[in-house]
Simulated scan of single mutants.
Amino acid sequence: MSRDIFFVSNSIDELGGVTSWSHQMARLFTERGHRVHVIGIAGPDVPQDLGGDLPYPTTTLYDAPPPKLGPLRGLRGRLDVVERRHRSAREAGMLEQAEKLSALFRAAGPGAVVIVTQVWAMEWVALADTAGAAVIGMSHESYEYTLQSSRFRRVLRFYRDVDRMLVLTREDADLWIRRGLDNTGFMPNPLPFMPGEPSPRTEKAVISMGRLTDQKGIDMLLDAWAEAAPLHPDWTLRIYGSGEDEEMLRKQCTSLGLDDSVEWMGRTNDVPGALRRGSLFVQSSRGEGFPLALMEAMATAVPCAAFDCAPGVREIIRDGEDGLLTPPGNTTELARRLDELISDRELRDRMGEAARTNVRRYAPEEIVRRWEELFAFLER
């Protein structure tokens, strides 16, 4: 059955895995004959390159980001006339933009589905008319990482009454169900690509790929590399990505004496090519959902060493078989795992080939089939 499918996110082109996932799924559904529309609430500070013309329409609601609101602290805050006017203006603006969503949803055919990828975007969808459409609210991060943020209470508030809340693993779904969201299910991410040419794992390079922000833990990676690099002076750590912490991280790199063994590569539009030029991949995140970067590395036959920071990480990597996991934040242990893989070419090759085989269980056609079964179920 061909359906109208709406993806609603914070932005249609902000940097990060949610954007990559949204447009991958939008393409897959379009190829299956569905009518797809990708919607963003506001534009990002730094846009992501979406790769030219898209085979589906996109819409951004706000021309400029909506004003941010701080908490109303105490009686004085609640009585502040200027702040109250500021909040009233923002609420009126939200209603105006939500009406744009309503118009799009009302024009959809039977069986329409609204997939809200982030809870901030859900605040606008909650104000819109979604009658006749199934609404799916998603969280692309682990339960524990959400629990530590302001998003936790908003997920409890805004996802409680959607037709289905979706997280990325069964383990995380069980945790949300225990918090009273018994409409929660799980759906893993699809494999972003399966390159025809895997990495030969001959270049003496460790690859890191991700935004240069606190979440990705590049500061901890540099600490780990400071322990591993002296053992392997002919190896290089290549860090792909950009972000708000870049200047701070470069200073840390210099202070650790790593400038000769660390290459700052910036953003890349050729992820498979970058991965093929590496022999192992490292992920040092403080929090993750179901990280696409790990799947991309494994598809390229590059073994991974990663902090076991989320259920999605330990579901993707089978520790000791196709990669190595370490306790979150333990930089000494991460350094030991890097040393283990760098020192043993046979181990790298065995794990790299196992990774390329095992990651095929997330083939896009299988994930799309599961989504379409969910659509049919919600329509009953």
Score class of each variant (00 low, 15 high):
residue 128 A to C: 03
residue 140 H to D: 05
residue 142 S to Y: 08
residue 314 R to P: 14
residue 156 L to K: 12
residue 51 G to Y: 02
residue 124 W to G: 00
residue 203 E to Q: 09
residue 307 F to W: 13
residue 4 D to V: 00
residue 5 I to A: 12
residue 162 V to D: 00
residue 352 G to L: 01
residue 358 N to M: 14
residue 161 D to I: 03
residue 303 P to Q: 04
residue 247 E to Q: 12
residue 107 A to Q: 15
residue 278 G to D: 05
residue 76 R to S: 10
residue 364 P to K: 08
residue 331 T to N: 05
residue 242 S to I: 12
residue 270 D to S: 02
residue 375 F to S: 10
residue 31 E to R: 15
residue 108 A to R: 13
residue 359 V to A: 13
residue 358 N to W: 15
residue 58 T to Y: 04
residue 339 D to L: 05
residue 223 D to H: 10
residue 178 R to S: 06
residue 123 E to A: 14
residue 140 H to L: 11
residue 86 H to P: 05
residue 112 A to Q: 11
residue 331 T to P: 09
residue 110 P to L: 10
residue 192 P to Q: 03
residue 362 Y to C: 15
residue 167 V to H: 04
residue 188 P to G: 04
residue 247 E to D: 09
residue 166 L to F: 08
residue 29 F to P: 02
residue 180 G to F: 10
residue 264 W to P: 05
residue 163 D to T: 02
residue 90 R to Q: 11
residue 320 G to A: 11
residue 264 W to S: 04
residue 252 Q to C: 10
residue 271 V to M: 13
residue 273 G to C: 12
residue 103 A to P: 09
residue 201 R to K: 07
residue 148 Q to F: 13
residue 354 A to H: 07
residue 71 P to W: 12
residue 96 E to M: 01
residue 38 V to L: 09
residue 73 R to M: 06
residue 165 M to C: 07
residue 237 L to I: 06
residue 140 H to C: 07
residue 309 C to P: 06
residue 95 L to T: 03
residue 268 T to W: 05
residue 76 R to C: 05
residue 12 I to G: 04
residue 258 L to P: 03
residue 216 K to D: 15
residue 338 L to R: 00
residue 141 E to K: 06
residue 134 A to H: 13
residue 147 L to R: 15
residue 340 E to S: 05
residue 227 E to K: 12
residue 30 T to I: 02
residue 65 P to H: 09
residue 67 P to N: 03
residue 256 L to M: 07
residue 251 K to F: 13
residue 221 L to R: 05
residue 272 P to M: 02
residue 181 L to G: 03
residue 18 V to S: 08
residue 198 P to C: 06
residue 253 C to D: 11
residue 200 P to I: 07
residue 165 M to W: 06
residue 249 L to A: 04
residue 27 R to S: 09
residue 370 R to I: 11
residue 10 N to Y: 11
residue 96 E to A: 03
residue 17 G to C: 13
residue 5 I to Q: 01
residue 73 R to S: 05
residue 124 W to D: 08
residue 255 S to D: 15
residue 195 P to N: 05
residue 13 D to W: 00
